Simulated assay, not measured.
Amino acid sequence: MQCRRGFTLIELMVVLAIVALGTALVSLALPDGDRNVLARDGARLAALLESARAQSRVAGVPVQWRPTASGFAFDGLPATAPPLPSGWLDARTRAVGNAPVTLGPDPIIPAQAIVLQLTGSATPPLRVATDGLRPFEVEDVPP
Protein backbone atom coordinates (compact mmCIF):
# COMPACT_ATOMS: atom_id res chain seq x y z
CA MET A 1 0.00 0.00 0.00
CA GLN A 2 1.30 3.41 -0.99
CA CYS A 3 1.23 6.24 1.63
CA ARG A 4 0.08 9.62 0.23
CA ARG A 5 1.67 12.82 1.48
CA GLY A 6 0.45 16.37 1.06
CA PHE A 7 -2.96 17.96 0.61
CA THR A 8 -5.63 17.30 -1.95
CA LEU A 9 -6.86 20.01 -4.25
CA ILE A 10 -10.19 20.17 -2.40
CA GLU A 11 -8.48 20.73 0.95
CA LEU A 12 -6.40 23.58 -0.49
CA MET A 13 -9.47 25.19 -2.04
CA VAL A 14 -11.37 25.03 1.28
CA VAL A 15 -8.46 26.70 3.11
CA LEU A 16 -8.24 29.43 0.45
CA ALA A 17 -11.99 30.04 0.69
CA ILE A 18 -11.76 30.40 4.49
CA VAL A 19 -8.84 32.83 4.20
CA ALA A 20 -10.71 34.89 1.55
CA LEU A 21 -13.83 35.02 3.71
CA GLY A 22 -11.81 36.13 6.74
CA THR A 23 -10.07 38.83 4.71
CA ALA A 24 -13.39 40.13 3.38
CA LEU A 25 -14.88 40.33 6.89
CA VAL A 26 -11.85 42.17 8.26
CA SER A 27 -11.91 44.72 5.43
CA LEU A 28 -15.61 45.40 6.06
CA ALA A 29 -14.96 45.91 9.76
CA LEU A 30 -12.25 48.54 9.24
CA PRO A 31 -13.47 52.11 9.74
CA ASP A 32 -13.56 54.58 6.87
CA GLY A 33 -10.57 56.87 7.41
CA ASP A 34 -12.04 59.86 5.55
CA ARG A 35 -15.33 59.57 7.45
CA ASN A 36 -13.43 59.60 10.75
CA VAL A 37 -11.43 62.68 9.69
CA LEU A 38 -14.61 64.57 8.81
CA ALA A 39 -16.38 63.47 12.00
CA ARG A 40 -13.38 64.58 14.09
CA ASP A 41 -13.35 68.04 12.45
CA GLY A 42 -17.13 68.26 12.93
CA ALA A 43 -16.93 67.38 16.63
CA ARG A 44 -14.13 69.89 17.15
CA LEU A 45 -16.11 72.62 15.36
CA ALA A 46 -19.21 71.86 17.45
CA ALA A 47 -17.15 72.25 20.64
CA LEU A 48 -15.61 75.52 19.40
CA LEU A 49 -19.03 76.91 18.44
CA GLU A 50 -20.39 76.10 21.90
CA SER A 51 -17.37 77.76 23.50
CA ALA A 52 -17.84 80.90 21.38
CA ARG A 53 -21.57 80.85 22.17
CA ALA A 54 -20.81 80.76 25.90
CA GLN A 55 -18.26 83.59 25.57
CA SER A 56 -20.84 85.60 23.65
CA ARG A 57 -23.41 85.18 26.41
CA VAL A 58 -20.94 86.08 29.16
CA ALA A 59 -19.67 89.19 27.37
CA GLY A 60 -23.12 90.21 26.08
CA VAL A 61 -21.85 90.74 22.52
CA PRO A 62 -22.69 88.84 19.34
CA VAL A 63 -19.97 86.52 18.05
CA GLN A 64 -19.95 85.42 14.45
CA TRP A 65 -18.35 82.34 12.88
CA ARG A 66 -17.40 82.58 9.21
CA PRO A 67 -15.55 80.30 6.81
CA THR A 68 -12.24 81.50 5.37
CA ALA A 69 -9.94 80.19 2.65
CA SER A 70 -7.70 78.47 5.20
CA GLY A 71 -10.34 77.41 7.71
CA PHE A 72 -12.66 79.62 9.71
CA ALA A 73 -12.66 82.64 12.00
CA PHE A 74 -14.59 83.96 14.96
CA ASP A 75 -15.42 87.67 14.83
CA GLY A 76 -16.57 89.72 17.79
CA LEU A 77 -14.93 87.79 20.62
CA PRO A 78 -14.08 90.06 23.54
CA ALA A 79 -10.41 90.99 23.87
CA THR A 80 -10.31 89.41 27.34
CA ALA A 81 -11.53 86.03 26.00
CA PRO A 82 -9.00 83.34 25.17
CA PRO A 83 -8.50 83.07 21.39
CA LEU A 84 -10.23 80.17 19.64
CA PRO A 85 -8.47 78.06 16.99
CA SER A 86 -9.19 79.04 13.40
CA GLY A 87 -8.12 76.06 11.29
CA TRP A 88 -9.28 72.56 10.45
CA LEU A 89 -7.48 69.51 11.78
CA ASP A 90 -7.32 68.13 8.22
CA ALA A 91 -6.34 70.44 5.37
CA ARG A 92 -8.97 68.84 3.07
CA THR A 93 -11.96 69.86 5.24
CA ARG A 94 -14.08 72.69 3.86
CA ALA A 95 -17.25 74.47 4.93
CA VAL A 96 -19.50 74.24 1.88
CA GLY A 97 -21.67 77.21 0.90
CA ASN A 98 -22.03 78.51 4.40
CA ALA A 99 -23.19 81.95 5.38
CA PRO A 100 -21.82 83.34 8.63
CA VAL A 101 -23.27 81.83 11.82
CA THR A 102 -24.26 84.20 14.62
CA LEU A 103 -23.73 82.89 18.15
CA GLY A 104 -25.61 84.91 20.76
CA PRO A 105 -25.58 86.80 23.02
CA ASP A 106 -29.16 85.59 23.58
CA PRO A 107 -29.52 82.10 25.08
CA ILE A 108 -31.78 81.08 22.19
CA ILE A 109 -30.40 81.68 18.70
CA PRO A 110 -31.93 80.94 15.28
CA ALA A 111 -31.55 77.39 13.97
CA GLN A 112 -28.26 77.23 12.07
CA ALA A 113 -26.12 74.64 10.32
CA ILE A 114 -22.66 74.38 8.83
CA VAL A 115 -22.03 71.75 6.13
CA LEU A 116 -18.58 70.15 6.12
CA GLN A 117 -17.06 68.20 3.25
CA LEU A 118 -13.67 66.68 2.41
CA THR A 119 -12.27 67.88 -0.90
CA GLY A 120 -11.13 65.08 -3.18
CA SER A 121 -13.10 62.43 -1.30
CA ALA A 122 -16.30 60.51 -1.96
CA THR A 123 -17.20 60.72 1.74
CA PRO A 124 -20.69 62.21 2.19
CA PRO A 125 -20.81 65.62 3.88
CA LEU A 126 -21.71 66.20 7.53
CA ARG A 127 -23.66 69.00 9.20
CA VAL A 128 -22.81 70.74 12.44
CA ALA A 129 -26.19 72.10 13.46
CA THR A 130 -28.33 73.47 16.26
CA ASP A 131 -32.03 74.12 16.51
CA GLY A 132 -31.20 77.29 18.45
CA LEU A 133 -31.85 75.88 21.90
CA ARG A 134 -29.77 72.72 22.05
CA PRO A 135 -25.99 72.61 21.60
CA PHE A 136 -24.38 72.20 18.20
CA GLU A 137 -24.04 68.55 17.19
CA VAL A 138 -22.69 66.61 14.22
CA GLU A 139 -25.25 64.88 12.01
CA ASP A 140 -25.50 63.32 8.57
CA VAL A 141 -26.73 65.52 5.73
CA PRO A 142 -30.21 64.36 4.70
CA PRO A 143 -30.39 63.18 1.06
Rank of each mutant, 00 (worst) to 15 (best):
G71C: 05
P143I: 05
V26P: 03
A43R: 12
L21C: 12
D41Q: 01
V138E: 04
P135L: 03
L25F: 14
D140S: 08
A46D: 10
I109S: 11
A111H: 12
P107F: 06
D90R: 00
A81W: 08
P85D: 13
L28A: 13
P62G: 12
E139V: 14
T102L: 10
A52V: 10
L30T: 08
R57M: 15
G33H: 15
I114V: 14
G71Y: 10
F136E: 03
T68D: 10
L103P: 09
F136A: 03
A129P: 09
V96T: 15
L89C: 04
R35M: 01
D140P: 10
R94F: 01
T119F: 05
Q64M: 11
L21W: 08
A95N: 08
P135T: 02
R57N: 05
L25S: 13
G33A: 13
S56A: 12
E137Y: 13
P62C: 06
L21K: 10
A111F: 06
I108G: 12
G60P: 00
R44I: 08
A47Y: 07
F136I: 01
D106M: 09
P105H: 02
T130D: 09
P143Q: 15
G60D: 07
Q112C: 00
L25G: 14
Q55F: 12
I108A: 15
R127C: 10
V115E: 15
D34H: 06
A52Q: 09
W65I: 03
V101P: 01
A20I: 02
G71V: 10
G71H: 05
A79M: 07
Q117V: 03
E50L: 01
A43N: 11
P125G: 01
N36T: 06
T68W: 03
D106F: 01
G104D: 02
S86F: 11
D34W: 06
R53Q: 09
A47S: 14
F72D: 08
F72W: 10
S70W: 14
G97S: 07
G76R: 00
T68C: 04
V115C: 11
L89Q: 12
D41W: 02
A95V: 12
T102W: 01
I109P: 01
P142M: 14
R35T: 04
P110S: 02
V63Q: 02
L28K: 11
V26W: 09
A29N: 09
Q55R: 07
I109Y: 04
A99K: 13
D41Y: 00
L118S: 00
R94N: 07
D140L: 08
A111N: 09
V115N: 15
L133I: 06
T102D: 14
L116M: 04
S121V: 12
T130S: 05
R35V: 01
R53D: 08
L45Q: 07
V26S: 10
L77P: 05
I109D: 15
G76M: 04
A46S: 09
G87D: 15
E50F: 02
P85H: 03
P83T: 13
D106E: 12
A43I: 05
R94A: 11
P142I: 11
F72K: 00
A29G: 12
S51F: 13
T123S: 09
G71N: 06
I109N: 11
P107W: 09
G22L: 10
A54F: 12
A39Y: 14
F74G: 03
P105W: 01
L25N: 11
E50Y: 11
G120C: 10
P78D: 15
A20K: 09
